[in-house]
Amino acid sequence: MTTELSPHRSEVLPVVRGLAAAAHGGPALAVTVLALLLVLAQGLDPARGVLVVAAVATGQLSIGWSNDLIDLARDRRAGRDDKPLATGAVPARLVRACCAVALLACVPLSLACGLLAGLVHLVCVAAGWAYNLGLKATLLSWLP
């Protein structure tokens, strides 16, 4: 029996796929896997490794979701049928909430990795956001 509190699996999977696509799941996963490989190469203890990977993953998710949110109107005007936000397959309100949660989680997760490492990571996340917020349309687009 499906209720509003327990949606049917066939209703949830497209939303999860849409969230992954709106987050630019491929690149976000690639960067997160790279962080995991670096964690393993450095021999970090498992708890610290999970912390580093979680910080990177949340930062990447926030950057990906912010990109699609910022570009939403343009993507709709262009008829981008490969963008789940533009097609309405995923509600912008949901992506906005996921983006905020990811960004809010990224800050303490990053800083828990150590002050210097955390600040470096947050500068990198800020660079991704700066690119999304307009640097991509300038001569400085290469900078982030």
Rank of each mutant, 00 (worst) to 15 (best):
A127N: 07
A73L: 11
C124G: 14
W142V: 14
G118T: 05
L13C: 03
L140W: 10
L44T: 09
C113Q: 08
V39T: 15
R76H: 02
W65E: 00
V31I: 13
S66Q: 13
E11H: 15
A102H: 05
A112W: 11
V123C: 06
L104K: 00
L69E: 12
P14I: 09
S141F: 04
A78R: 15
C113E: 02
S66W: 11
T3K: 03
V50H: 03
V107W: 08
T58V: 05
C106Y: 08
A73I: 10
L140I: 03
P27E: 10
A89S: 12
G79R: 14
T3C: 05
C113T: 15
Q60G: 02
A55M: 11
L36F: 01
G128T: 11
L104G: 10
D75E: 05
A130R: 15
V125L: 08
G26T: 13
L122V: 00
S110H: 05
M1V: 08
S66L: 14
P84C: 05
G128P: 02
V15I: 15
S62W: 08
A130E: 06
V125F: 03
A117I: 01
S10P: 03
A112T: 10
V90F: 13
S66N: 13
I63L: 09
G26V: 12
L143G: 02
G43M: 04
S62T: 14
R9P: 01
E11F: 13
R76I: 14
A21W: 04
V56P: 01
L61F: 15
V95R: 01
A35E: 02
L143K: 07
A92W: 11
R80G: 02
P46I: 07
L116V: 14
A21K: 12
G43V: 04
V33E: 02
H8I: 00
T138M: 11
L29S: 10
L115T: 14
D81P: 00
A102W: 05
L38C: 07
W65N: 00
V95L: 06
T32K: 02
A102Q: 04
C106S: 14
V50Y: 06
V95D: 01
V50G: 04
